[in-house]
Amino acid sequence: MPDAATLYGLLGIVLAGLGAHAAIVQRDSIRRLLAINVMGVGVFLVLIATAYFGPNQDPDPIPHALVLTGIVVAVAATALALALLRAFERSDDE
């Protein structure tokens, strides 16, 4: 029987793969952005699964800190990408 860390870690790897595939295959910028974010969640899941040692033991805080950093970096990049997209679409009208 797989433990939770293994289960969620594998899920993370599969999500990262699904995200990577969609990021390459999709052509629309918003869809690509969604894909990259899903990929990020996948990688973060691997890290957090690694930090999990069961319900009765304290988790490893280092991956938790890394993922917090990763989430902020991801949202910053997403915001910049969406602003670029809007600026691009606006330049259409001019």
């Binding site: 870690g9 990262a16 995200g19 990577a20 990021a23 390459i24 910028s29 690509r32 952005l33 990259i36 990929m39 990020g40 996948g42 990688v43 691997v46 890290l47 699964a49 690694t50 280092i62 991956p63 890394l66 990763g70 990049a77 910049l80 990408a81 670029l84 997209l85 691009f88």
Partner: peptide
């Protein structure tokens, strides 16, 4: 710039996946 950003993000996610595996 938009394309540059998307590619960069994809690349660094690949890099980070490797880092996660190494840490584990």
């Amino acid at each position: 710039a938009l394309r540059y950003l998307m590619i960069g993000l994809l690349g660094s996610m690949g890099y980070l996946a490797g880092v996660a595996l190494l840490y584990s």
